[in-house]
Design a protein around this nucleic acid. Structure first.
Lengths: 125, 125
DNA sequence: CTGTATCCTATAAGATACTG
DNA sequence: CAGTATCTTATAGGATACAG
């Protein structure tokens, strides 16, 4: 089974990773934790715009995937820290490449969009 | 403007790139075209499971973003070829890093999931 | 502080039918 | 072949209220 392990086949590892990071929050959370462990609220503050619900969901599924550890300290008020596992730290590297690319090239993408939109305005109705 | 160009702020380049590749088809299409230009139908065949509608949409937005060129040959039947631009080829590199990571580590993620699920079964109701 | 539970909506994306 | 158009559903994600 899994006769064609190429990225275009549905069950290949790459497709699965894309499902994983495709939620667009994963990358940001892993990036935030790349600098060190953070507690729940801290992660939320770092990742601008994420709702508490989605933060909870994403953190849990990252823990499930073995990318994060969750450490709850039995104190009042509760203190829960999230940290990258070795696997998570490993993922942070290619993610960082993407980050660099974005910083270096997204402006160019912006320009391309503007140019495209200019060419395709006025037309239509 | 853009006082905090960090990946966690909403308007930063990284966020925009994530919106771009977060649709999960972008990565696959760019990956397919990394090996050379393809016509419309060919791309569809490479990217397993994509619908024609989504293929059309994604290709167009990639062209808009300056990552792909679209060349229509005025013949019957129509022949339209898509190819990476230099910018697109450039993006293909970090994407390929992700691909490598996935091939190397997704099995480990699978194992983590299984372990997590085993620990969290039986419990509940 | 760290969640859970519920409701609600916007949107991605599949299926299908049709066109130059 | 290479799309366009329309309908429909699944799901991500936001808002809000509540709990340990």
């Amino acid at each position: 089974m899994d006769p064609s392990p190429n990225p275009f086949n549905r069950d290949c590892p790459t497709r699965q990773l894309l499902d994983r990071i495709g939620d667009q929050w994963t990358v940001l959370i892993v990036g935030a934790l790349a600098e060190g462990p953070l507690r729940f609220t801290e992660v939320g503050k770092r990742v601008d715009g994420i709702s508490q619900k989605v933060l909870t969901q994403t953190l849990r599924s990252l823990v499930r995937d073995g990318l994060l550890t969750r450490t709850a300290y039995p104190v009042i008020p509760p203190r829960v820290e999230y940290a990258l596992t070795p696997l998570g730290r490993d993922l942070a590297e290619p993610l960082d490449m993407l980050d660099r690319w974005a910083r270096g090239h997204m402006a160019e993408v912006e320009r391309a969009r503007d140019a495209y939109d200019r060419e395709n305005t006025s037309v239509s109705a």
